[in-house]
């Protein structure tokens, strides 16, 4: 399922797949474990990724952090590794995408993406992100498809983490209220 419609999406975090109109648009990770995965934490820092090679994973870490500052602390690279590891199509796209990124970086700055300084990273990613943001249908260029999926997984992984959802967005729900607070007061 490498190609997804990227128009309307809602993460299926309410645990249902059919009742609401957008809920069939799922988390990237949802496709990998249709049936109840055991509740366990994602791999913590310094754990070995399942799919990415060491150099690749370093690039994944730098790219995720460039898209959302704080992504590394929220273990987003491991979420991406888990999702990509579950699909042959994702594996292919991500391997090709990371190769493209390094080739691009080498030709412009004579070093791989993972060694770039902040301004160079921004310079390289700005046009790529703009193309990915504009693409509503699956784009033809591999690098655009790769970046769109990478950004999507980074957003999914970050905003469903405790750091992202609770600490950053300030989620306060899922509690027991004796009555629903009126908006008047």
């Amino acid at each position: 399922m490498a190609e997804r419609r990227d128009t309307l999406k809602i993460i299926g975090a309410i645990g249902t797949t059919c009742a609401f109109p957008f809920s069939s648009d799922e988390l990237y990770g949802q496709q990998q474990h249709e049936h109840a995965a055991p509740p366990q934490a994602l791999a913590v820092e310094n754990a070995k990724p399942s799919f990415f090679k060491d150099d690749e994973f370093e690039t994944v870490r730098r790219l995720a952090e460039a898209i959302i500052p704080g992504a590394i602390a929220a273990a987003v690279p491991y979420y991406i590794d888990m999702v990509v590891n579950g699909s042959a199509q994702w594996k292919k796209l991500f391997r090709e995408g990371l190769t493209w990124l390094d080739a691009q970086s080498q030709s412009k700055y004579a070093k791989p993406f993972r060694e770039l300084q902040e301004p160079n990273k921004i310079e390289l990613l700005t046009p790529l992100c703009a193309m990915a943001d504009r693409s509503t249908k699956p784009a033809s260029q591999i690098e655009v498809r790769f970046f769109k999926a990478f950004k999507g997984m980074t957003a999914d992984g970050f905003f469903t983490s405790k750091i992202g959802l609770v600490d950053t967005l300030g989620y306060r729900g899922n509690t027991v209220l004796s009555e629903f607070p009126s908006c008047e007061g």
Partner: peptide, 17 residues
């Protein structure tokens, strides 16, 4: 009716960083 644990819309906001 959205559940605030669902933030899938964030993917489609433009930009990065």
């Amino acid at each position: 009716y959205q559940n605030r644990r669902a933030v899938g819309w964030a993917r489609d906001l433009p930009g990065f960083g």
